[in-house]
Design a protein around this nucleic acid. Sequence first.
RNA 1: GGAGAGGUGGCUGAGUGGUUUAAAGCAGCGGUUUGCUAAACCGCCGUAGUGUGUAAAGCGCUACCGGGGGUUCGAAUCCCCCCCUCUCCGCCA
Length: 423
Amino acid sequence: MLDIKRIRDKPKEVQEGLRARGTDPSIIHVIIEQDRIRRDFLQDAESRKNERNRLSKEIGMRRKQGEDTSQTQAEVRALGQAIDSLDAKIKVIEQEQHQRLLGVPNIPAPHTLRGKDASDNRVARTWGTPRNLDFPAKTHVELGEALGILDFTRATRMTGAGFPLLRAGAAKLQRALIQFMLDLHIHEHGYTELLPPFLVNTKSMTGTGQLPKMQDDMYHAQTDDLWLIPTAEVPVTNYYREEIIEEPLPIYLTAYTPCFRREAGAAGRGTRGLIRIHQFDKVEMVKFVEPETSYEELESLTAQAEDVLQRLELPYRVLELCTGDISFAAAKCYDLELWAPGQQEWLEVSSCSNFEDFQARRAGIRYRDANGKPQFVHTLNGSGVALPRLMVAIMENGQQQDGSIILPKAIVPYMAGQDRITA
RNA sequence: GGAGAGGUGGCUGAGUGGUUUAAAGCAGCGGUUUGCUAAACCGCCGUAGUGUGUAAAGCGCUACCGGGGGUUCGAAUCCCCCCCUCUCCGCCA
């Protein structure tokens, strides 16, 4: 959520920021006008409350001395009715204003690459060289079904399209990868592990920015009004919701969770296999930092996600997203993409974002600055990394002519010594 | 799920309709005294909104005692609904 004071004081800057990401900035005029009206009403109501407080106190004193105060009481009663009516108006304006503000996306950072859509993103760097196969590359679907480790048919029968079913070597590999990534972040990158709830309430979902905008993409448990998390970002960032953090910053948290996304509107679009599914596992990294350091922290966060891919010896590239392609809550963002020789495409496995104070303001996450004054923290998060596409890359990059898969050396200790998946 | 007890500032804890701007203590910050520490003493010490300042500071006002609503001239205090915590019972992986 944007600071109303920022909108009030620097409307040009805010409108330019919205235009840069392709959002119609006309709402800003409405917000500023409503803010002016709200403050007019507010001043009126508050001066009347001041009067009421003064007179009520006077009534109390005069009654103690046995005086008749019915005249003043009637006066204050009328005053009270005027206040009620003003308060009601203010409440409506504030609720409308709040809803408007929740719908306004974050302003891109000044140094975020300008551009209108994904085609304007820039490849910041690439790492590793895609392997040259001397046989026709198979997709992970072909490999997985032949090896009996991916079963889309049964998954569809037990649940429906777009849900994964891993078996034997694939199930074991995915579990090993989770363990490997968590260990890396905990022991070498300084993170503390959380194992959070997988369902959260509406406030948490709003705090990180999924609601109200992305409501149709979420699974909702109606009876209890709880939401299945679309990413660990939600519970982990909300760890400090409505708190003033007393521990020293920065704070690094990591968590493995399953993620649930309805992917409404994406049906039928490249949905075969593990590339886009309704349920997937992910290891997530979340940072709470002081505003001055958040862009350095974004670089190190991205490097930590890259570390996962480098240790697994998988070729990848880093995309710097342009203003037209960054997500709703982000001010700047890098995507990590793995090369998949079977798919013949780059697969996004991580998105590392700096949200500045956008989420902190929605969720009420603050710290005390050097003067002891509460300030909003900056929050960042990045996948470290998403499992299904990582599985795809490992399978397609490690495939042999006989259809078996040679695993990255780094994961072998986590596989109880197994270095290859065979039929 | 049932019954009971609770929810007041960073913490402890008073306050059952009106000089309460929420007592007091602890912790914290600043100061006096002191060779240093401790003690003692003095002062400061919540959050948000809004007004006035170029701004910072300051000053004023409003709101906030788990959340929401109600009664009243006036609510931490009385009434209703909800949430959460604790204890016991039931159920249960």
